[in-house]
Each structure stands twice: as C-alpha cells, then as structure tokens.
Design a protein around this nucleic acid. Structure first.
Lengths: 358, 358
DNA sequence: AACGACTGGGAATGCGCTTTCCAACTAATC
DNA sequence: GATTAGTTGGAAAGCGCATTCCCAGTCGTT
C-alpha cells in the first residue's frame, strides 16, 4: 500500500467527549442533544449544546440505530433508476421518506426476482425500517424458484418486524403478513378502458406490443386491453412480445413496419408502456410511416418527459409520484391496510394526437 | 396508540444465538459467518453455517458498522432524482457502488446549498464512507452564507475520514482536503466548441437561454458559448435567465416567440441544457414557429430520452453515467487525484437537425 | 523426549449511544 | 415540620458485532 494510504480516521468526536467537556454524564448529554422524553435543565442543556458545537459533534446514527433498534432507513428496489417510470416513483418515495424523517437506500436490480432477493437481503441486513419494491413481478416458470426465495426472504424480514410495501401486484408466494401491504394499480381496468375508447374510433386491426411473457404488469395490461376489445365486439389483438423498453418497442416497430401494408386498414398499436410506444413511433417514422397517419400508437403511464414528444402520445395517466408516496407512507403506517385501500390509485385514459383518426 | 400497534419486533436472531445453537463461541461464529482473516476448521464452520441457516440469521449491518467503523454506505446528493440528468448520473453512481460492494443512500435537495448542507449532515451522521454531490454550485450572493456552512460541514466530514466526490465545480469555500476530489466537467470548453460550430453555419443573431444567474454550471456554459462566439468574430449573444428546467425553457421560448420577427435573420438559440431546449422548442411550436425553420435551437447534455424527440436536438454529449461512476470510484479511491484527472471527462458536440440551416 | 513455533477456539473488551433504574433533592401537602 | 410526590442528574446495563489477547492443544525439530 502506498504511503498516501495514511487515512487518518481522526474519528469524529463522541457523545462521551461532549459530556466530559460539558461536565455532565453521557446520559444527560444524550438527553439534550438527541430527542428524549426527559429534558435536562436549561443551564445544563446550554452547556452541553455549546460543548457539542465546539467539538463539532455529529451523532453516530449507526450507534443510535443499534441502541434503539430503528434505523430510519427505507430501502427502495427498482429495476433501473434512470428509467423515467422508476425515477418518478423514486421521487415520490423520497418525498414521503423525507416527510417521515427517514432516508432512502437505493438498490437497482436487473429486474429478476433473484436480483430483488439480493437487494432485499441487503436491506434486511441493514435493518431498514421498510422496504419498497417498485419493479414488476415475474410469473415466468424459470423465475419461480427465485420468486420463492424472494418471498422467503421478505417473509423473514416482515416476521422480524420489517415493513414492506409493493407497487402493483403482490409478491408471489408471500402470504399476508403483518407489516406487508400492496398498493394495487388498476392496470387491467385502465387498459380495458383505453381499449374501449380506441375500439370506438378505430376500424383497423389492433396490435399489442407487450413486454416479455410473464411480466406481471405487462400481462395485466395486455389482458385488460384484450378484454376491452372483446367487450367492444372486436377480434382479439395480435400480441408481440419484446423487451419492456424503448428498444423493445423499436424492434417491434421495425418488424411491424416491414409487414405488407393494409391488411384490414390502418392498424392501432397498443404498447405496454410509454417508452415502448416511443420506440415504436421512432421505428415507424424511420421506415417512412407516419403516426397517426398510417398507424395509431398508444402507450401507458403518461411519463412526464414525453409531454413535448410529437405526435402527442395517447396513453393512460398514472400518478407515479403519488404511487411512490403512497406505497411508502402505507408501508410505514400502523393503520390496517383496509383504511387506505379504499382510496386506491386511479389512472386516466388520455387520448391524444397519436391515435387520432383522419 | 391503537391496539394493532402491537408491532412485535420478534427481533432477528443474533450472532450469539447462532453461536449457542452451534455450540461455539460468538467469536468463532463471527469468524465463519462474516469474513475474517482467520477461518475456523471445516467441521466447526459447517455447524455454524447450519445453525445460522436454521435460525434465518442475517447479520446486523449496523452493529458491524459500529464495530469496525465502516458502513458501506455512499451518500448521493442530487437536486431531483426524476430529472433525467440526475437519474443518469445516479445510475452510474449506483453501478460503481455495487461494484465496490456498497449501497447508495439518496438525498434530494431543493438545489440550494442549505439543502445540500442538511443532506451532507445526515450522511455524516450515518457515517457514509463517501458522499457524492451531483448538483450545481451556486455563486449567488444570498447563498454565500449557506455555502460557507456547507463547506464547513463537508470539511469536518473529510477531516473525520470521510470521502467526498463532487461533479463539476468544487465546493465553494472548501479548501483542498484529504479525501476530497472534484471531477471536472469541461462545460465551458464544450460550449465554446458548440458556439464555434454554430457560428460557422448561422448568420442570424444568437440568444442564450440560461439558468438563474449564479448557477455555476449554467454560467460556465454561457461563458464558454460567448467566448466561442467572440472567437468567431460574432457579437455577444443576448442572455435570458430563467429556471434551469423544461418549464424555464418554455417560458423563455414563449417570450422569444412573442418578439417581432426578423431582427437580423433567423435566430439561433442556445439553451443551458437539453430539457430547457425542449421547453423552448415546445413553446415555439405552440406559437406556430418551426424549428429549425424559423429558429435554430441547441441544448446541452444529450439526454438519452431525447433521442426520439423531433427535430433531433443539437447538443453537447456528456457521458453522464460514466460521470457518476467516475466520481464515485474516484472518491472511494486511495490513489492521489492526479492519477485520474488526466483522463478527465470529455464531451462531444453533436450537431443535428434542430440547428440545420436551410 | 523436550522444546519451540504454530494453530484453532474462547473470554473479554469496546464501538457510540439509549434507557432503565437509582439516588439525591426540591416542592408540595396536612 | 414531617411525609410524600415529583424532579433531575448519574451509574450502569445493554444493542449486536469485531477483534485483541490468551490458552490449550499440535506438530515438527534436534
């Protein structure tokens, strides 16, 4: 090791030092510096505060956490913090955490249950007060083992007094547990509503560009959309499975653009989420096809950044930041889950230029 | 307190319990379960591992941190995690943290030095191994007191052995300190390069839509752009100050669109960052002005999500994720700062459709 | 066979703080 | 003025773990 390795952890001053300087006991110093039920006399308090100030004392949160077994940490698990869907939720989580005087610990996974399990274990080790999971569940067969491990890890976490909040679908295989609650997102219902409105205006064939088969959020949206179509007396839409991302949409769009034209009129494409929709539009445009001229395209989520994208995207608005806030506050709350389930998340179908007819 | 308050912190099992079950001392259990220089015999190790497994033992990271004074935490301070600029950097930080087997603790501020100081204090209290600051500095007079407090807080943090990495400009008032390093971003130089290229192609007047006066990143970009203009023999551009955000750009764009046309030809507008540029284009479009037809617009950052925005935005590409990685790794590194300063961050001027002429 | 050099396991200490539990007072009551 | 209730500060016992130090065995020398 090189000589400049000399990291001199001068070690921050401790409560004991402050106490000594102030001429009081550590107990008293603790009481005045860090909230306590008992408040020492004004004179003493002032002395202690001065001592702390002059020593540049900063309480060691680790030690405090150990002593009172509450860390003030909230673990957040997302697939990709740079994805606007997740970053919007993260903002909400952060806002709620701040309000509750906690800090958020961030973990990104590859989107697999295995990765989520790892993150959950890390949070459990850190004794986070709560864990918030924002990623979608996977119902794929090859993930079932990992799902089981994830459920086991989380169950243990909850059993040890941890709180757990999940966006959308519940954790597969995790039974109702004290401290565990899910924030339902009506993906299916909203997709159905979107399909209904679209079916009323479009005569051409419908195509669904979905995420991988077995990705719960995507599956719910597909199911709802098909249902809406059926209720409108339309044929089920063809479903293309691809990555649940902009590039996945782009690939699907390229594929669709390459098909022989006009098989039953101008197609209406429903993408599993907004960024996929953007990818589709980009691919179509690149192949010389205009939206909504030669194909209608709709997304889901109503990502804020897409506001200025043209053609304006028809989509389903979801209050992502609110979702983040709610799931966090819910997890932290001591009230029974029923209390806020009633006032569940609601979305709004928003038809815009990208699906206009004529 | 309501009856369902009965949070029964069954308390996760402890090392001591595992040790007892395995019939060994806590010391031995610690050695086998959590890495140590000494490794107990194979038979013993197996017994301990089994005991841990059956008890569902999860080491308490807080206690470990306290015992060996290293938390494995990296604190990240950003203005807004939902802003694509910051979320891209955050992704890089997260990636580096993961590589170094650490977790990232997230704090968002209102962008003021006061908010950053508060976040820094929280990280210091948690004894984060490193703090990474991604927001821009403010040189405004009214922020100078808060800047001083921020510098003081950080200096103390570094003095106590903490590591600090800052993106772009250094912390105002913070002297060179052991463990403190800045990752320079050549904003000025790149803006100058952009201006040079733009000046060669545009004959009309230049306008700069900048962030608030005193926002270091914005100021650097403005300065560089003006310099590039001057070197090309052009008049200095008019500078409009507004919020460093999409809406700020939108407001400025609206204002510009309202001006009487053709005062010296088609204007070329340089926005302080990409999202502002998008706002400008949106405002112009709303007022019936086309880009690049009636005004050229350029941004800065080359945000990934804007790839599919039309007209494609001329901008300066910055490797944001790489910046996040580098600043994190740099802060954690024991090597002297010079070693990696040489291989600094580089950006690329990217001229695209939004500034095409004719 | 006797000695030193190792080796593997345990006892004990401490990391920095919170929180009973106590003891010493002060103030209030009859 | 004596008794009780109410305060206030301090001593001490942990919170869960890492680690230093110590001791009893083991093995290898000469």
């Amino acid at each position: 090791m090189s000589p400049h390795m000399e990291r001199n952890p001068v070690a921050a001053s401790t409560l004991a030092e402050v106490a000594k300087l102030a001429g009081v006991s550590p107990a008293t110093a603790s009481r005045v510096l860090n909230g306590s039920a008992r408040t020492p006399g004004a004179g003493i308090a002032e002395r202690v505060r001065q001592a702390a100030e002059s020593l540049g004392y900063v309480a060691n949160a680790q030690a405090q956490a150990l002593a009172k077994s509450s860390t003030g940490l909230i673990g957040l698990i997302v697939h990709d913090i740079a994805d606007p869907y997740f970053s919007a939720i993260a903002r909400g989580v952060q806002s709620a955490a701040r309000q509750e005087r906690r800090m958020v610990l961030l973990a990104t996974t590859d989107g697999t249950p295995a990765g989520e399990k790892e993150a959950a274990a890390a949070f459990a080790a850190r004794r986070a007060d709560a864990i918030v999971i924002a990623g979608s569940r996977s119902t794929r067969a090859e993930d079932s083992a990992a799902n089981g491990e994830l459920a086991a890890e989380l169950e243990r976490y909850c059993r040890n007094g941890g709180r757990l909040g999940v966006v959308g679908q519940g954790i597969i295989g995790l039974p109702e547990t004290e401290g565990y609650r899910t924030l339902p997102v009506p993906n299916e219902e909203l997709a159905r509503g979107l399909a209904a409105e679209l079916a009323a205006a479009h005569t051409g064939p419908f195509v669904i560009v979905a995420g991988p088969d077995g990705l719960a959020t995507s599956d719910e949206r597909v199911r709802g959309f098909q249902r809406g179509l059926a209720e409108a007396g339309r044929e089920p839409a063809e479903v293309l499975h691809t990555a649940f991302s902009r590039n996945g949409g782009f690939d699907a769009g390229t594929q669709l653009a390459g098909r022989p034209g006009d098989r039953g009129g101008r197609p209406c494409i429903f993408a599993g989420n907004d960024v996929m929709a953007i990818g589709i539009v980009a691919a179509l445009r690149e192949r010389g096809l205009s939206v909504p001229g030669e194909a209608a395209v709709a997304g889901f989520d109503d990502i804020e950044w897409l506001r200025d994208f043209r053609p304006e995207l028809s989509t389903v608005g979801l209050p992502l930041e609110e979702i983040g806030r709610r799931v966090t506050l819910g997890a932290l709350s001591d009230l029974p889950a029923e209390d806020d389930a009633a006032s569940g998340i609601t979305g709004t179908v928003r038809l815009r230029r990208s699906t206009e007819t004529a």
